[in-house]
Amino acid sequence: MIYLEDLEVGQKASFGSYHVTRDEVIEFASKYDMQPFHLSDEAAAKTHFGRIAASGWHTCAMTMAMIATNVVETEQAGLGSPGVDELRWLKPVYPGDTLRIESEIVEVRPSRSKPDIGSFRTAVTVLNQVDVPVMTFTSIVLMRRRPE
Protein backbone atom coordinates (compact mmCIF):
# COMPACT_ATOMS: atom_id res chain seq x y z
CA MET A 1 0.00 0.00 0.00
CA ILE A 2 1.28 3.48 -0.88
CA TYR A 3 0.83 6.06 1.90
CA LEU A 4 1.53 9.79 2.10
CA GLU A 5 5.01 9.13 3.54
CA ASP A 6 5.94 7.26 0.33
CA LEU A 7 5.47 10.38 -1.81
CA GLU A 8 8.12 12.99 -2.56
CA VAL A 9 8.08 16.34 -4.34
CA GLY A 10 9.48 15.83 -7.83
CA GLN A 11 8.27 12.23 -8.10
CA LYS A 12 7.02 11.59 -11.64
CA ALA A 13 4.66 9.04 -13.12
CA SER A 14 3.49 8.16 -16.60
CA PHE A 15 0.46 5.94 -16.98
CA GLY A 16 -2.83 5.26 -18.67
CA SER A 17 -4.13 4.64 -22.13
CA TYR A 18 -7.60 5.68 -23.21
CA HIS A 19 -8.76 5.31 -26.80
CA VAL A 20 -11.39 7.94 -27.70
CA THR A 21 -14.26 6.65 -29.81
CA ARG A 22 -16.74 8.60 -31.89
CA ASP A 23 -19.69 6.79 -30.30
CA GLU A 24 -18.51 7.69 -26.80
CA VAL A 25 -17.89 11.34 -27.75
CA ILE A 26 -21.44 11.64 -29.10
CA GLU A 27 -22.97 9.69 -26.20
CA PHE A 28 -21.26 11.90 -23.58
CA ALA A 29 -22.17 15.10 -25.43
CA SER A 30 -25.79 13.97 -25.85
CA LYS A 31 -26.09 13.68 -22.07
CA TYR A 32 -23.82 16.40 -20.71
CA ASP A 33 -22.60 18.91 -23.32
CA MET A 34 -25.05 19.25 -26.20
CA GLN A 35 -23.10 21.83 -28.16
CA PRO A 36 -23.46 21.04 -31.87
CA PHE A 37 -19.71 20.65 -32.56
CA HIS A 38 -19.69 17.67 -30.17
CA LEU A 39 -22.63 16.02 -31.95
CA SER A 40 -22.58 16.81 -35.68
CA ASP A 41 -19.93 16.63 -38.38
CA GLU A 42 -21.69 19.42 -40.26
CA ALA A 43 -21.84 21.75 -37.25
CA ALA A 44 -18.23 20.95 -36.25
CA ALA A 45 -17.02 21.67 -39.80
CA LYS A 46 -18.20 25.28 -39.37
CA THR A 47 -15.98 25.78 -36.29
CA HIS A 48 -12.27 25.90 -35.55
CA PHE A 49 -12.53 22.21 -34.56
CA GLY A 50 -13.20 21.18 -38.16
CA ARG A 51 -14.73 17.89 -37.04
CA ILE A 52 -16.48 16.41 -34.02
CA ALA A 53 -14.41 17.03 -30.90
CA ALA A 54 -14.81 15.61 -27.41
CA SER A 55 -16.19 17.90 -24.72
CA GLY A 56 -13.53 19.18 -22.34
CA TRP A 57 -15.60 17.65 -19.56
CA HIS A 58 -15.48 14.32 -21.37
CA THR A 59 -11.69 14.68 -21.51
CA CYS A 60 -11.79 15.19 -17.72
CA ALA A 61 -13.92 12.05 -17.31
CA MET A 62 -11.60 9.95 -19.48
CA THR A 63 -8.65 11.27 -17.47
CA MET A 64 -10.38 10.35 -14.21
CA ALA A 65 -10.90 6.81 -15.53
CA MET A 66 -7.15 6.49 -16.08
CA ILE A 67 -6.33 8.01 -12.68
CA ALA A 68 -8.80 5.75 -10.82
CA THR A 69 -7.42 2.67 -12.58
CA ASN A 70 -3.89 3.69 -11.57
CA VAL A 71 -4.94 4.28 -7.94
CA VAL A 72 -6.50 0.81 -7.73
CA GLU A 73 -3.67 -0.98 -9.55
CA THR A 74 -0.94 0.62 -7.42
CA GLU A 75 -2.91 0.19 -4.17
CA GLN A 76 -2.81 3.77 -2.96
CA ALA A 77 -4.32 4.85 0.36
CA GLY A 78 -6.22 7.66 -1.35
CA LEU A 79 -9.21 9.31 0.27
CA GLY A 80 -10.59 11.29 -2.65
CA SER A 81 -10.01 14.83 -3.78
CA PRO A 82 -11.26 18.22 -2.65
CA GLY A 83 -10.76 19.53 -6.20
CA VAL A 84 -8.41 20.63 -8.93
CA ASP A 85 -6.71 23.93 -9.71
CA GLU A 86 -5.78 25.58 -12.99
CA LEU A 87 -7.70 23.27 -15.35
CA ARG A 88 -6.81 24.09 -18.96
CA TRP A 89 -7.99 22.53 -22.19
CA LEU A 90 -5.05 23.12 -24.52
CA LYS A 91 -5.99 21.27 -27.71
CA PRO A 92 -9.10 19.48 -28.97
CA VAL A 93 -9.49 15.76 -28.37
CA TYR A 94 -10.90 13.90 -31.36
CA PRO A 95 -12.34 10.44 -31.94
CA GLY A 96 -9.39 8.19 -32.75
CA ASP A 97 -7.04 9.88 -30.28
CA THR A 98 -5.41 7.83 -27.53
CA LEU A 99 -4.80 9.69 -24.29
CA ARG A 100 -2.23 9.10 -21.55
CA ILE A 101 -1.06 10.91 -18.42
CA GLU A 102 2.22 12.31 -17.13
CA SER A 103 2.32 13.69 -13.61
CA GLU A 104 4.73 15.25 -11.12
CA ILE A 105 4.17 15.71 -7.40
CA VAL A 106 4.60 19.38 -6.51
CA GLU A 107 3.61 19.34 -2.82
CA VAL A 108 3.23 16.80 0.01
CA ARG A 109 1.71 18.02 3.26
CA PRO A 110 0.57 16.23 6.44
CA SER A 111 -2.69 17.58 7.84
CA ARG A 112 -2.34 19.91 10.82
CA SER A 113 -5.73 18.98 12.28
CA LYS A 114 -6.02 15.28 11.36
CA PRO A 115 -2.80 13.39 12.10
CA ASP A 116 -3.85 10.24 10.21
CA ILE A 117 -4.17 11.98 6.81
CA GLY A 118 -2.48 14.49 4.57
CA SER A 119 -2.64 15.82 1.05
CA PHE A 120 -0.52 16.12 -2.02
CA ARG A 121 -0.69 18.18 -5.21
CA THR A 122 0.23 16.82 -8.60
CA ALA A 123 0.80 18.70 -11.85
CA VAL A 124 -1.04 16.56 -14.41
CA THR A 125 -0.59 16.68 -18.18
CA VAL A 126 -2.83 14.68 -20.50
CA LEU A 127 -1.23 13.94 -23.86
CA ASN A 128 -2.52 12.45 -27.10
CA GLN A 129 -0.90 9.72 -29.19
CA VAL A 130 1.62 12.13 -30.76
CA ASP A 131 2.64 13.50 -27.34
CA VAL A 132 0.80 16.81 -27.76
CA PRO A 133 -0.54 18.09 -24.41
CA VAL A 134 -4.34 18.39 -24.61
CA MET A 135 -5.15 19.23 -20.98
CA THR A 136 -3.37 20.27 -17.79
CA PHE A 137 -4.45 20.75 -14.20
CA THR A 138 -3.19 20.50 -10.64
CA SER A 139 -4.79 17.65 -8.74
CA ILE A 140 -5.28 17.86 -4.98
CA VAL A 141 -5.54 14.45 -3.29
CA LEU A 142 -6.23 13.44 0.29
CA MET A 143 -4.30 10.38 1.45
CA ARG A 144 -3.92 8.27 4.58
CA ARG A 145 -0.68 8.37 6.47
CA ARG A 146 1.13 5.14 7.31
CA PRO A 147 -0.37 3.53 10.42
CA GLU A 148 1.92 3.48 13.48
Results as ranks from 00 to 15, higher is better:
Thr125Ala: 12
Leu87Met: 15
Met62His: 08
Ala68Ser: 14
Val20Lys: 01
Ile117Trp: 01
Ser113Gln: 05
Arg88Asp: 13
Val106Pro: 11
Leu142Arg: 12
Asp6Trp: 01
Ala43Trp: 11
Ile105Asn: 09
Lys46Thr: 10
Val93Pro: 04
Glu73Cys: 10
Trp89Ile: 13
Pro147Ser: 12
Val141Gln: 15
Met66Gln: 08
Ile101Cys: 03
Arg145Asn: 09
Gly118Thr: 06
Ala123Ile: 07
Thr21Glu: 00
Val141Gly: 01
Glu27Tyr: 11
Val106Ile: 15
Val134Met: 08
Gln11Phe: 11
Ala77Lys: 01
Asp23Leu: 02
Ile105Lys: 11
Asn70Trp: 15
Val72His: 14
Arg112Gly: 07
Pro110Ile: 01
Ala61His: 03
Leu79Asn: 03
Lys31Ile: 01
Arg100Leu: 09
Ser103Asp: 12
Val72Gln: 15
Val71Cys: 06
Leu7Phe: 09
Glu5Asn: 10
Val72Ile: 15
Glu148Thr: 00
Ala77Val: 08
Met135Asp: 11
Cys60Pro: 03
Ile2Ser: 12
Ala123Val: 12
Phe137His: 15
Val130Asp: 05
Leu87Ile: 15
Ala61Leu: 09
Leu142Ile: 13
His58Ser: 05
Ser139Thr: 06
Lys12Tyr: 06
Phe137Trp: 14
Ala123Trp: 13
Val93Gln: 09
Lys46Gly: 02
Leu79Tyr: 09
Tyr3Cys: 07
Pro92Thr: 02
Ile105Asp: 04
Arg121Ile: 07
Val106Thr: 15
Glu27Trp: 01
Ile26Asp: 11
Asp23Gly: 07
Ile140Lys: 13
Thr47Asp: 00
Cys60Leu: 04
Ser14Thr: 14
Phe15Asn: 12
Glu86Gln: 14
Phe28Trp: 03
Leu142Gly: 03
Cys60Asn: 03
Glu75Pro: 06
Arg22Phe: 05
Glu75Ala: 00
Val126Phe: 09
Glu73Ser: 14
Glu27Lys: 12
Gln35Pro: 06
Pro147Cys: 00
Thr63His: 06
Ser14Arg: 14
Met62Gly: 07
Asn128Trp: 03
Asp97Leu: 00
Ala54Phe: 00
Thr59Trp: 05
Pro115Asp: 02
Gly118Gln: 04
Ile26His: 12
Glu102Val: 11
Ala13Asp: 10
Trp89Asp: 08
Tyr94Thr: 09
Pro95Thr: 01
Val141Phe: 09
Glu73Ala: 14
Met66Asp: 05
Arg145Val: 13
Leu79Ser: 04
Ile26Glu: 11
Leu4Asn: 02
Ile67Val: 15
Glu102Gly: 09
Met62Trp: 14
Leu99Ser: 01
Thr47Ser: 08
Ser55Gly: 03
Phe37Trp: 12
Arg88Gln: 15
Glu24Ile: 00
Val84Tyr: 15
Tyr94Asp: 02
His38Ser: 10
Ile26Gly: 04
Leu127Asp: 09
Gln11Asp: 00
Trp57Glu: 03
Thr74Trp: 04
Tyr94Gln: 04
Val141Trp: 01
Ala61Tyr: 02
Arg51Asp: 04
Val134Gly: 05
Gly16Glu: 07
Lys91Glu: 15
Leu99Pro: 06
Thr98Val: 13
Asn128Gln: 00
Arg112Thr: 08
Thr125Asn: 10
Val124Lys: 11
Leu127Met: 08
Leu79Gln: 14
Gln76Tyr: 09
Ile117Met: 12
Leu142Trp: 12
Phe49Pro: 11
